[in-house]
Design a protein around this nucleic acid. Structure first.
Lengths: 170, 170
DNA sequence: GGAAAACACTTGACACGTCAACCAATGCGG
DNA sequence: CCGCATTGGTTGACGTGTCAAGTGTTTTCC
């Protein structure tokens, strides 16, 4: 026996399918999960950016500053920063150029190995980060507020598992 | 009684913390989940792009073509396409410009409402999509292959729940 | 110790994203 | 039926992302 209305809609149509007004079902659960990840993360990224960018830096620049603050006064080579970025960034040099232009970061060629350029965060960079700590924490929590603590842990584990699949074949 | 080695590492340090070589623990589970989402999705996005971009279109352009194919010959107004995109795109006009320049898409001003511009996918666009269907399906599955079907469903539900939190406050 | 490979960036060219301002067509209230 | 708000889209300016090729250093291995 049929469901209540609409003889046209056999499958209940997943939430994400409705959101992007897709008439046909997904070809696979993998595809639906991938699209849900892309869409959800895009939204979250914009949510975070809307907190960070009004201060005059981008999300990526913020990430660099956080990495340098984490180094606690130790200078980090350019590519080491690139390696630690949450999102990959081939444009790391120019990202640092812009941060240096704003005097949020200082760079110096390394004496021991003159190929490397070491980077430090400047006091004004630390100030900027300090002013963002509260707002960013609040944004993090509010963006994921619909998930319980247990669900957040579950999500983290699932994501870890996805990333496990990507080593081995370069 | 202490764990096996390293008197230095009190917390086990989450997987993502190791990946970005972060010495300090995350300030909250929300933050860790958010960073895991950003990092994981960035990797998946690049994985997908590496399948699509060699054909000469970007992931966003591919998304537009998929939307137009889904319309099955019906012309869609520009902003309707923007609305259906997986990732938000203010640059929809120029995206369509580039697709039109490659003759993958055709546009025409609507007669009933001359403000609107209707878009259709061209045969060469359909061919391009057809040639990508297999590779994209395979990429989808391989990128999420480490998750079981049940885990994929679980992930989709968690992501749906996150997006639920974002209506109401425009 | 000297050529060649590996490394750590840097640069140029170009596509793309983003925001605000703009324009034209339509709808709507008086 | 006339002004004014709304809708639908376009444009300019600018920052950023991305790839490939290039530069200067260090290491490696005869």
């Amino acid at each position: 026996m049929a469901k209540h209305h609409s003889p046209e809609a056999p499958a209940p149509a997943s939430r994400i399918a409705q959101e992007i007004r897709q008439n046909r079902p997904f070809r696979s659960a993998s595809q639906e999960a991938l699209i849900a990840l892309l869409r959800t993360t895009d939204r979250l990224r914009r949510g975070l950016s809307s907190v960070i960018e009004p201060t005059g830096i981008t999300l990526q620049q913020y990430n660099v500053l956080r990495i340098l603050r984490g180094a606690r006064g130790e200078g980090l080579p350019t590519l080491e920063i690139a390696h630690r970025m949450v999102e990959e960034t081939p444009g790391i040099t120019r990202l640092l150029d812009r941060l240096e232009a704003k005097s949020l970061v200082r760079r110096e060629r390394c004496r021991q190995d003159r190929r490397q350029v070491l980077c430090w965060i400047e006091p004004s960079g630390l100030d900027l980060l300090a002013s963002l700590d509260g707002p960013v924490d609040r944004a993090d929590e509010s963006l994921l507020a619909t998930l319980s603590a247990a669900e957040q842990r579950q999500l983290i584990l699932l994501l870890d598992k996805i990333r496990e699949g990507e080593r081995h074949d370069p």
